[in-house]
Amino acid sequence: MIKQKIRDFIFRELVFVDNPAQFSDDDDLLEAGLDSMGIMRLIMFIEDQFGVTLPDNEIEPDNVKSFNALESWILRHKKP
């Protein structure tokens, strides 16, 4: 659910890939073209959509590099 929403947003607004269905949850989003401005919009989207606050010091490549990384990052901050 989280992953699908992020997927839709990223492929619609931030990153173009030839075939989104073939882009795996572990593929590198930064290599695919997710840049600093894209990360900023993504964070605004995530905080707004999932009601989480992502701490400033956790915004770094490791947490945004793939859909799996993004999902586990969000889940760590989502209240049960």
Binding site: S36, M37, I39, D56, N57, I59, E60, P61, V64
Partner: peptide, 30 residues
């Protein structure tokens, strides 16, 4: 790489004791 990690960018500016910076508003917004 610091442009992907704004809090590290702030720390870098502090550690380097930068006095002057000419950049674009979108990064400053981040």
């Amino acid at each position: 790489a610091l442009t992907l990690s704004p809090s590290r960018l702030s720390q870098w500016l502090a550690k380097q004791a930068i006095s002057t910076w000419y950049t674009v508003p979108s990064l400053l917004s981040f």
